[in-house]
Simulated scan of single mutants.
Amino acid sequence: MILRIDHVGVVTADLGAAAPMLGLMDMKCTYSDDVDTYGVVTSFWQCPGDTTSIELVAPVREDAAVRGHLRRLGPGLNHVAFEVDDIDADLAALRDRGAVLVDEEPRRGGRPGLRVAFAHLGPSTGLLVELVDYGNRA
């Protein structure tokens, strides 16, 4: 079951150049990490008092998952992430309902304890969604 919007992912070729732009809006970096499974580095930014984040995502390898996006579209919106309570069941439900899975199985995400999986909702929306599951997060 979808619990909430967790974050919005923004792809950039240069994390160091993009990060100060979020600071212009008084957002603060709350977490950064290398996510080797996707070949990217990420940083999460939040407004004071809000739990929804903007995630900056930049490639660190030639085979990074976001390189194609940057080549085709340049920097910008990449995905909307939804926190779910059972990523395995929700991923299967998306598949059964016709979504095109990018990840057949959940992978390690860009925050501690996070499991993630991506899916395309189809050409009518062009939307890439990420399911995020923190497990037993308090």
Score class of each variant (00 low, 15 high):
residue 21 M to T: 10
residue 16 G to R: 07
residue 127 L to V: 13
residue 137 R to A: 06
residue 102 V to E: 11
residue 82 F to E: 13
residue 128 L to R: 15
residue 16 G to Y: 02
residue 79 H to I: 11
residue 119 A to Q: 01
residue 103 D to K: 02
residue 132 V to E: 06
residue 45 W to I: 00
residue 108 R to W: 14
residue 26 D to W: 04
residue 110 G to C: 05
residue 125 T to C: 07
residue 120 H to Y: 14
residue 62 E to V: 13
residue 14 D to I: 06
residue 17 A to E: 06
residue 27 M to P: 07
residue 7 H to P: 02
residue 102 V to W: 04
residue 61 R to F: 06
residue 1 M to E: 15
residue 46 Q to L: 01
residue 50 D to H: 12
residue 62 E to W: 03
residue 128 L to I: 15
residue 70 L to H: 10
residue 13 A to D: 14
residue 9 G to S: 12
residue 71 R to C: 04
residue 22 L to V: 08
residue 40 V to I: 12
residue 77 L to V: 03
residue 56 L to Y: 00
residue 30 T to P: 00
residue 10 V to E: 00
residue 104 E to T: 07
residue 35 V to A: 02
residue 92 A to L: 11
residue 87 I to K: 12
residue 55 E to Y: 04
residue 44 F to I: 07
residue 32 S to V: 00
residue 97 R to K: 15
residue 72 R to Y: 01
residue 15 L to S: 08
residue 35 V to M: 04
residue 3 L to N: 15
residue 61 R to A: 14
residue 22 L to F: 10
residue 54 I to E: 02
residue 52 T to A: 15
residue 4 R to D: 14
residue 67 R to M: 12
residue 60 V to Q: 09
residue 78 N to F: 15
residue 85 D to F: 00
residue 1 M to N: 13
residue 5 I to H: 11
residue 64 A to N: 08
residue 36 D to I: 08
residue 107 R to F: 03
residue 116 V to H: 00
residue 37 T to G: 03
residue 86 D to K: 12
residue 65 A to C: 00
residue 81 A to T: 09
residue 8 V to T: 13
residue 71 R to F: 07
residue 19 A to T: 04
residue 22 L to A: 03
residue 10 V to R: 02
residue 89 A to L: 15
residue 101 L to S: 09
residue 4 R to W: 13
residue 63 D to K: 13
residue 35 V to R: 00
residue 111 R to W: 03
residue 40 V to A: 06
residue 48 P to I: 12
residue 113 G to D: 11
residue 81 A to H: 01
residue 111 R to A: 14
residue 131 L to M: 13
residue 129 V to A: 12
residue 31 Y to H: 15
residue 6 D to E: 07
residue 92 A to H: 10
residue 90 D to P: 08
residue 84 V to N: 08
residue 26 D to I: 04
residue 53 S to E: 13
residue 10 V to T: 06
residue 105 E to V: 14
residue 38 Y to D: 11
residue 70 L to N: 11
residue 94 L to R: 07
residue 131 L to V: 11
residue 105 E to M: 14
residue 37 T to V: 12
residue 18 A to D: 08
residue 100 V to D: 10
residue 60 V to S: 01
residue 77 L to D: 05
residue 119 A to Y: 06
residue 98 G to P: 09
residue 48 P to A: 15
residue 122 G to W: 04
residue 114 L to P: 01
residue 110 G to P: 02
residue 33 D to I: 00
residue 64 A to S: 14
residue 14 D to T: 01
residue 1 M to T: 11
residue 38 Y to I: 03
residue 75 P to G: 14
residue 106 P to Q: 03
residue 62 E to P: 09
residue 94 L to W: 10
residue 91 L to K: 03
residue 7 H to K: 01
residue 123 P to T: 03
residue 61 R to G: 08
residue 119 A to N: 02
residue 59 P to N: 08
residue 24 L to A: 07
